[in-house]
Design a protein around this nucleic acid. Structure first.
Lengths: 311, 311
DNA sequence: TTGTACGCGTTATCAG
DNA sequence: CTGATAACGCGTACAA
């Protein structure tokens, strides 16, 4: 009991005894068991869960950094899980993290299924969706201003006279690519330019798939004169396809969502839609902490972070 | 007790009661408390700690993925900490992770201090150093074959006739950059080429510092004709400096440790020393599991992973 | 096959 | 200021 008081610095232990306890701790290498600590009711674990779809994607690395930054300042540690875009892995991770009594959970959701996430809410654990949202599932979340970002990028291409702009997207059903496609379509509509469904390629999850998709388009009878790619995986694949095609790499204009290092030094006609993944992570963590700090349940808050076109 | 038996699937519960328990669990949303579980002596937490110096660096993202991959296959979760190259943060994280009773710890060590890591050993927790080592601290570890990698890269530059090759490194005291510098020096020695200390710039931790370092060299009286950069941060900075200098970007040959996406499409005379960070992560996790699975303490094992020069 | 007693390491509470 | 007691949720050992 006295040791407990010393470690928690409650202040009601005689100075001389504090010293003796401290000495003994050092001598014995004693360490308080945080798990035992947390099983008492009402106690926090100072542990958050973070689930991303691909830890090796630099974009999510930045997000992770932002989350870590905010949590560390509050003395909170982070369990990290990789769902690999698989809903079953996401479900396992969520369930496991709840079993470990995380104080909060930040998830980049794989898809539209939300039953397991609903369970997080029922368990009273603050939940924040980061980078993506789930239609009809009303919880705290941070996303980018995808529609405007895509709109601005495509509008620029249209303003430069392009009339056949390919769209390369990842999942065909998910929230974020759908919003980016929306921006693409609206930009066309506002410019009075008809879109060609044959130019819209969805479902490329990695650069190689994206490369093949654009390669097919370039070899088809009516190739695009420009490309809009909805994420950095598709941008990389698109550049590969252009480089492989043998044509002048600057003959096709590319606008891609997500910036990446040195993109401006590449010998392509390339612009990127830049945004701050780290700030997105910070915001997600802050939203979760806001819930944690509040006694009463709060109304879900959705934030949108700005994007910026760079070339 | 019966619930416990059902969840652990010990098999000695009547089928009908198993069903009733399962129904109740679903109805109540009951979830076993893993922390309470783990405080019983001899019980594992199925939790590992991973400490890296920069979660947002894609290299460490790959490493994290490799670790995750192996651990997940064993049902082990991962606490991730970011030391930000600061020894005090590393110490805090190690201490905290021990308090949470991790079953193993994988660390990319910041520097040469190892007292806090010695404590990990004393606590009987499997410890593996990844990507870097600490002189005089003999524990399991995985590193790259830095010396040979650097040697090969520099030897190629020398073979192409370069006689003034700049060296751009990160920390001047740490293990890994020292090994890479060693490779640089040996390649010169073997070729009978004298090195110029003025061309060796250490301590650039980010691209901007590296850019300035090379900029200074290029503007000096006797500029290098080639650059060897010891990590991807320095490579990025070096390319910026060359691009900013106004000279023909292919006039200076660059060889850099660490590959990165699309490097081959950049309009520079650039080769990279490639390696598999994911495999490094996998190996680190396997070494830790090897300790965990062994009853007797094992002799420390050091592995070196190969590198490959690509252009 | 099911249940009881106990202890893991911690802390709130109350007694001294 | 310090210590004793009880309880958190779980699983081993043993009893029924």
């Amino acid at each position: 009991m006295t040791v407990s008081r010393v470690l928690r610095e409650t202040g009601d232990v005689r100075a001389e005894k504090v010293q003796r306890v401290r000495d003994a701790i050092l001598e014995l290498g004693y360490r308080r068991n945080e798990n035992a600590r947390s099983i008492r009711p009402g106690q926090r674990t100072d542990l958050f869960g973070l689930i991303v779809t691909d830890v090796s994607n630099p974009y999510y690395g930045q997000l992770e950094l932002g989350v870590e930054e905010v949590l560390t300042s509050r003395g909170i540690r982070m369990l990290v899980g990789n769902s690999d875009e698989r809903i079953d892995r996401e479900q396992d991770l969520v369930s496991d993290f709840l079993g470990r009594k995380v104080d909060g959970l930040i998830v980049v959701p794989v898809g539209e299924r939300s039953a397991h996430l609903q369970a997080v809410r029922s368990a009273g654990v603050p939940l924040v969706l980061a980078s993506r949202a789930i239609a009809g599932f009303d919880v705290d979340g941070v996303v980018l201003d995808d529609v405007r970002g895509a709109y601005d990028g495509v509008a620029t291409l249209l303003a430069h006279g392009h009339r056949r702009i390919a769209f390369l997207g990842h999942s065909s059903s998910a929230f974020t690519p759908a919003r980016r496609l929306d921006g693409y379509l609206r930009a066309h509509a506002d410019a009075g330019v008809a879109t060609d469904p044959a130019l819209i390629k969805m479902g490329q999850r990695d650069p190689e798939a994206a490369r093949r998709a654009l390669q097919d388009l370039l070899r088809s009878g009516h190739a695009p004169t420009a490309v809009f790619s909805a994420n950095n995986r598709n941008t990389v694949g698109a550049l590969r396809a252009i480089a492989d095609s043998g044509m002048d790499p600057r003959a096709i204009a590319v606008v891609g969502f997500d910036a990446f290092e040195l993109f401006d030094l590449l010998p392509f006609d390339l612009s990127v839609i830049e945004h701050d993944a780290r700030a997105l992570g910070r915001t997600a963590a802050e939203l979760a902490l806001r819930q944690l700090d509040s006694d009463a349940p709060l109304a879900p808050e959705r934030r949108e972070l700005p994007t910026r076109l760079r070339n």
